[in-house]
Nucleic acid binder design. Structure first.
Lengths: 107, 107
DNA sequence: GTAGTATATGCGTATGAGTGCATATCTCAT
DNA sequence: ATGAGATATGCACTCATACGCATATACTAC
């Protein structure tokens, strides 16, 4: 079937967006809560949540609640390889100022 | 700068489209004329030409005229690697019925 | 020149994606 | 139960994109 290309194009569509790309790049370093991503991207919380929803519904990230915070993980290996191909190896985890989650507070 | 993600997302955007993806997949097997792609995709000529323009203006394919026919080549190595990553190794070149170019006519 | 074939371009339209904003939901603490 | 912080959802608006179609251009043969 030709919808092999349909399927593949959907994966690329997820990556064809700067904010989503940055989120995924951050998540491949380490899982992170929404407030962490909000601080790194410097975008409103609702905006980050919406992009996370797109990624979640596509199945490339998973969410895990811990008290007030929700931690997101990158779970798609193909996406991880594609990120490595175009962005190079994952960098260091950054601890942005203004993120209240316990992980970022433990400087 | 953060527009590293901007740049990368543009590459992914090109690939986030079934028809363009199929064109690029065909071109990584071998260069091909428009009528070849038109036959493989089973789409109107104008449609194929428009997608080729997008790819050409993005610099991932080049065009080379030979008489009546224009042959397109895949020239972007990163795109070639990304295609290999998600579509697997390139398959055999197909010679579709209904393509008048000399290459396809030499069965 | 004309005719015919291959390819490119321009334009109109409709559908969907991206984004902002208000608000709802969940959880914990008091 | 109330309040506060973290996250999710719903809705509306705008703008880009995909696509179809008519037409223009480029080349060849006669």
């Amino acid at each position: 079937m030709g919808d092999r290309y349909e399927q593949a194009s959907e994966v690329f569509h997820l990556l064809s967006h700067p904010a989503r790309l940055q989120i995924l790049d951050e998540l491949r370093r380490d899982s992170a809560c929404v407030c962490h991503l909000e601080a790194v991207l410097d975008r409103p919380q609702a905006y980050v949540s919406q992009q996370l929803r797109v990624l979640r519904e596509a199945g490339v990230v998973s969410d895990e609640r811990d008290g007030l915070f929700v931690y997101y993980h990158l779970v798609d290996e193909e996406v991880e390889r594609l990120l490595g191909e175009t962005l190079g190896p994952a960098g260091e985890r950054r601890e942005p100022a203004g993120c209240p989650c316990p992980r970022c507070q433990a400087e």
